[in-house]
């Protein structure tokens, strides 16, 4: 953790805005596409590969340089959240570390493209809005039954739709 902190401090002077969650609309649209309803919290449109976590996520416990989850025993340990459509139950950890963790990922372009959750909390909602990452909840149960790691998913947090396949 000490090195982790040192890395943060080195970068302290170079704070700037990085755009994330750029829409890649064309890729997800196709003949076999299946659509599910969801409830948009942070708006925007993004598509990418699904990555599913059984456990709540504390973004402070990811490596900002790679997006890899470093929390011991976490169901995503060793996997990268960078550029993924991240599907997880909810956030955990204090507001300070959670926001800073996601921010460090964002600075390096390693934040998830969109987040699909079950249990919203004030930290995750505020952070998603501020960092302009699409965030949805209350997803049709059929989506959870169908989705697997690596599936291409389009999150349309404008219309409240998740589109798979195609």
């Amino acid at each position: 953790m000490a090195n982790h902190d040192a890395a943060r401090n080195r970068d302290a002077a170079n704070i700037g805005t990085v755009t994330v969650g750029a829409a890649d609309v064309s890729a997800a649209v196709g003949a076999a596409a299946v659509s599910f309803t969801c409830h948009p919290i942070s708006r925007g449109v993004a598509s990418g590969e699904a990555l599913i976590s059984r456990d709540d996520i504390c973004f402070y416990l990811t490596d900002p340089e790679t997006g890899v989850v470093i929390e011991k025993g976490h169901s995503l340990e060793g996997k990268s959240v960078a550029g993924k459509i991240l599907i997880f139950p909810g956030g955990k950890g204090s507001s300070v570390v959670q926001a800073d963790g996601l921010y460090q990922l964002m600075l390096r372009g390693n934040a998830p493209k969109a987040m699909i959750i079950k249990n919203p909390d004030t930290v995750l909602v505020a952070t998603a809005i501020i960092m302009e990452i699409p965030l949805v909840d209350r997803v049709d149960e059929g989506f959870y039954a169908a989705v697997k790691d690596g599936d291409r998913v389009r999150v349309d947090a404008e219309e409240g739709r998740l589109i798979m396949g195609g």
Binding site: V96, D100, Y103, Q104
Partner: peptide, 15 residues
Amino acid sequence: VALSNQEADLWFVER
């Protein structure tokens, strides 16, 4: 406000 003097906190308040 639980100001934390960390980068994300500073980035947001400055914004």
